[in-house]
């Protein structure tokens, strides 16, 4: 019986699993191995990769080794750049709950049979497909201190707007605002729309018969039924929040003013400073954080839904 179940499962799994093992899992495992090595990809061939134990991780936490002329190795505290970038990233991730709620509300608004809904859905989806250097340039214009449209609008109501992209205080909120603009109507909204379609209409009808208003239906029918999708969106948001956000600071602030995200930091370490082993270690610390968060969520979700 067990082997039969395994056979059937294999039938379903294999088409994806084989490719997954080769093209997705292998590079991930390789990066895990690299995180315990020093590797300068230009200077050394793959065969000369040198294992260094936990040194990359220690460096990341805040200490690196220094060998003086006498051959003595000592440990020196370094600038906690990784922690800084992690702080910046986590700060910008504070927008996630808001964005998710907004996406859900938007999906509920758009999930009705009204004239012109297709146009509205497309309009809200547009920012996520046009996002790129072009729209970033536009946002840089809008954030401009003197001529930007945001400060122009603020000036109408008598507020002197800040220099959004060139101050420690405002640069992060500015980037968050832009990301929300691009993200609310994007993939999350689509997933919520799809999730809303999955809810059997009978449930709403039954709730309505019981005298539930729209708000109560939303709370007691829609939200619980959307939990698996919400779980997915939340996990993906955490992952992309921690590991995404590379382009915007790279293009708009150069990573200054407290906008160096972990992904920008990681890219610079690996691809600009050629510290591939160290970059891999950073990636795996990120993995650990995301994995723990996912596990906590998993446990919480398991209590509420039957998996």
């Amino acid at each position: 019986m067990r082997s039969r179940a395994l056979g059937i499962a294999a039938l379903f799994l294999l088409p994806n699993l084989l490719g997954f093992l080769a093209f997705t899992l292998f590079p991930v495992v390789a990066s895990f191995a690299l995180s315990f090595c020093r590797w300068d990809p230009v200077a050394e061939p793959v065969s000369a990769i040198e294992p260094v134990g936990l040194r990359n991780y220690v460096d990341l936490v805040g200490f690196h080794s220094r060998t003086d002329s006498g051959g003595q190795t000592s440990w020196v505290a370094n600038t906690p750049r990784f922690w800084e970038s992690l702080y910046n990233t986590v700060f910008m991730m504070l927008a996630i709950p808001f964005n998710m709620a907004a996406s859900l509300l938007l999906a509920v608004l758009l999930n009705r049979k009204m004239r012109g809904m297709a146009i509205f859905r497309s309009a809200f989806f547009l920012p996520s497909i046009t996002a790129g250097v072009g729209t970033m340039l536009l946002w840089m214009w809008m954030f401009n201190k003197d001529m930007g449209s945001i400060n122009q609008v603020l000036a109408w109501v008598g507020i002197q707007g800040p220099d959004w992209l060139q101050s420690y205080f405002w640069a992060k909120p500015a980037l968050m605002l832009m990301a929300s603009w691009a993200g609310i109507g994007g993939v999350n909204m689509i997933l919520y729309l799809a999730g809303l379609q999955q809810i059997p209409r009978e449930l709403h009808e039954a709730a309505a018969l019981d005298g539930a208003g729209r708000w109560q239906q939303l709370r007691h029918v829609t939200v619980p039924m959307l939990l698996p999708v919400t779980f997915f969106i939340f996990i993906i948001s955490i992952i992309s929040g921690l590991e995404g956000g590379f382009d915007a600071p790279y293009v708009m602030t150069g990573g200054s003013f407290g906008t160096t995200t972990v992904s920008l930091y990681l890219y610079r370490q690996g691809f600009e400073f050629f510290r591939m082993g160290y970059a891999s270690a950073v990636a795996w610390v990120l993995f650990l954080i995301v994995f723990l968060l996912t596990m906590i969520n998993w446990r919480l979700a398991e209590k509420r839904v039957e998996y």
Partner: peptide
Amino acid sequence: LRFPGRKQIFFAYLATLMIPATVTMIPS
């Protein structure tokens, strides 16, 4: 479906989502 190793394999899938492409690019 229920099959042995279901949870473990699924976690392996999940785990690969959590590693940024920057460090998997060269191995790929």
